[in-house]
Amino acid sequence: MPYTITNFCIIRNNKAQAGSLSYSDTSVAGHEFLIKAYQHFGISYPKFYKMDNLSRLGFLSVELLLKNHPVHQLYKPEDVGIILSNASSSLSTDIIHQRSISNRSEYFPSPSVFVYTLPNVMIGEICIRHKFSGEGCFFIHERFNAAFLHQYVKLLLDNRIIQCSITGWVEMNEQNYESVVYLIEKQSQTNNQIVNFEPGELNKIYLKDS
């Protein structure tokens, strides 16, 4: 059975876009944009402020991806799989934790920083928010790897391990951030424009206005 990309969300260069949702603000510095976007879309989830920048980016991407999409009604929580990837793992937060311990007279490691020194904690945050309990995995790739993500998500769907997948790239480093996240389903439920789930299509979307 062919699978389709039923929605996608792109957040980079101080711009967030998913379907008809769009917001941009170039007046703020890089990571500040995530807070601005959170406020702009009227999301109410105070825990957002407790997250590190990587989790904020992933959380926000999925928030916009699912805002006008009935994933929660269509699938059981255990049938939604979250397969994400990036290049820098949790490096931006690793550096913050390292700073807090590099000087013995100022040695104050923080549990709320340390917990985010694992990239898959972002998947945990998304699962808590949306009550998803299915397959999850975080992969590290040097660049966005459409071929692998396609291969692995297709395998999960083919084997009926999951019915629907949130997959893509959520990258955060000290200088920059970039997220392109896709919703993959067995057939289009809400969208008239069918985009086949193929590596070429994933790449085409990834390269959009970049």
Binding site: F108, P109, S110, P111, S112, V115
Partner: peptide, 13 residues
């Protein structure tokens, strides 16, 4: 629970 641990750090720091 993480907040509780963080408050302990606050008291130390």
């Amino acid at each position: 629970s993480i907040d509780a641990l963080e408050l302990i750090v606050l008291l130390e720091k």
